[in-house]
Computed example of a mutant assay.
Amino acid sequence: MPSNVEIKAVLRDINYLTQRAKDLSASEGTVIRQQDTFFKVPTGRLKLRDFQDGTGQLIFYERPDTEGPKLSNYSITPTSDPKGLVKVLTDALGLVGQVKKERTLFIVGQTRVHVDSVEGLGVFMELEVVMKENQSREEGVSIANQLMLELGVKEADLIDGAYMDLLLKDQKNGYRL
Rank of each mutant, 00 (worst) to 15 (best):
152 G>V: 09
133 E>W: 05
146 Q>H: 10
139 E>R: 09
133 E>V: 13
134 N>K: 09
128 E>W: 03
149 L>Y: 13
154 K>A: 13
130 V>C: 11
132 K>E: 15
154 K>G: 03
136 S>D: 06
132 K>T: 15
149 L>H: 12
135 Q>K: 00
137 R>N: 10
140 G>Q: 12
141 V>L: 01
147 L>K: 10
131 M>R: 02
129 V>H: 15
152 G>C: 12
137 R>C: 04
152 G>N: 04
145 N>R: 14
144 A>I: 12
148 M>G: 03
124 F>Q: 02
133 E>P: 00
139 E>T: 08
135 Q>F: 03
145 N>V: 07
144 A>M: 09
131 M>V: 08
144 A>R: 12
138 E>N: 09
141 V>G: 05
131 M>D: 08
150 E>W: 13
148 M>E: 01
143 I>T: 13
134 N>I: 00
130 V>P: 01
140 G>N: 02
131 M>E: 11
131 M>Y: 05
135 Q>L: 10
144 A>T: 06
129 V>T: 10
128 E>M: 07
140 G>L: 11
124 F>I: 09
136 S>Y: 09
140 G>H: 13
140 G>P: 11
127 L>M: 08
128 E>Q: 09
126 E>I: 10
142 S>P: 02
126 E>T: 07
124 F>E: 00
128 E>I: 03
146 Q>L: 10
139 E>D: 15
151 L>G: 01
129 V>P: 00
152 G>K: 10
134 N>Y: 09
126 E>L: 08
147 L>N: 09
139 E>I: 02
133 E>S: 01
153 V>N: 01
142 S>Y: 02
125 M>P: 00
149 L>V: 13
124 F>V: 04
144 A>Y: 07
148 M>F: 13
138 E>S: 08
127 L>E: 02
151 L>S: 04
127 L>C: 04
